[in-house]
Computed example of a mutant assay.
Amino acid sequence: MNKVIPNLIIIGAMKSGTSSLHNYLNLHPNIQMSTLKELDFFILEKNWNQGLDWYSNQFPINKEVKIFGESSPNYTKHHLFAGIPQRMASISPDAKLIYILRDPINRILSHYFHQFVDHQEQRSLIDALQDDKNNNYINTSRYYFQIDKFLSTYKIDQILFLTLEELDKNRNQTLQKIFNFLGVDSSFEHPAFNKTYHRSSAKRRLTDLGYSISKLPSGLRFCNLFPTVFQSKVGYPVVDEQLLIYLKSILSEDVEKLRCLTGLSFLDWSL
């Protein structure tokens, strides 16, 4: 049996609509996205050692399918995981890549909020962003810095740049653009294109006691039965003017390089 090697890879960015995009594309009759999202196969520290058979088995064979794809936002975290473009090109050099982006500052806020709710981040927003030298939040929003690592192994016309803003505002037109890029029927529409995934600005966070209990067998289920006891509401982080100026000063050069590379204006962004 022939191995299925994906010819579409959504490489990021984290908290920029990759889950929604993965699900939209999977609705198309000629596109088969991996059953599990975020395979992280090309990351040495994660699933590279699982081997090609493991990777191939994530894609059920369907003779009608023209495009097999996966979505792993960690592929554009070069500051954490090196060598991804080279491993990717060694397996699927002709793949088409999609890099979906978001206003860099809004993406940072969503990233921080996600980590804070999951108890992976205990610091305040200001403290978490204070060190800009290998800062995970900031570097993940340096989109030119990230995509530049792929340009030695993939041609620029193999990469489609999108934004979460255009996917939200012009959903059907944006999906048509993607379908044209992939060479599948661009007239395809589906009622589920109106759905969004994994987005919320109001969430509940486990209390310290709840988090400790959640680590026990069936602990999380127990905590979810008593949300008023083991969970608390948390508000979405707010950027004050001083922090906004600081982030713009750090990110503006990268955004300008991205504009020059792609020819896109990113007018919906704050910098």
Rank of each mutant, 00 (worst) to 15 (best):
G83Y: 02
P104N: 07
I159E: 05
H198W: 02
E45D: 14
M14R: 05
N136W: 06
F161T: 07
K248C: 07
T140I: 04
Q86E: 13
L264E: 05
D132A: 13
I91R: 03
L101M: 15
S110G: 01
R171K: 15
F161W: 10
A128E: 03
S34G: 07
S124Y: 03
R204S: 12
Q130R: 12
P191Y: 09
Y211F: 12
L52S: 12
S187F: 00
I147H: 12
Q122V: 00
N224H: 14
L225K: 15
S249L: 03
G17L: 03
K155R: 13
S72R: 08
L264P: 03
F145Y: 15
T196K: 13
Y211Q: 05
H190K: 12
K257L: 15
P73M: 01
P29C: 04
I126F: 09
D254L: 06
N26F: 00
A192R: 11
L129T: 07
I5Q: 05
L244F: 11
F181G: 08
L251K: 13
Q130S: 14
A13D: 03
I9Y: 07
A82S: 15
F68G: 07
F81V: 02
S187K: 10
N135P: 05
L206S: 02
A202N: 14
T153V: 06
N26I: 10
S270L: 11
L101C: 10
Y24N: 08
D185A: 02
F188W: 07
L25C: 10
L151F: 04
L225M: 14
H190V: 05
Y112Q: 01
E241M: 03
T18I: 11
L271H: 04
P237G: 08
D208L: 11
Q173W: 00
S92A: 15
K46D: 15
Q120F: 12
N224M: 10
D132R: 09
Y24A: 09
I126M: 06
R199H: 14
T174F: 11
K215L: 09
I67P: 10
T140P: 00
H190W: 05
L251V: 09
D185F: 02
N2I: 05
V229I: 15
Y154M: 03
R221S: 13
K46Q: 15
I31M: 13
N224I: 02
K15G: 00
F188I: 05
L27W: 00
N134M: 01
L80W: 00
E70A: 04
L21V: 13
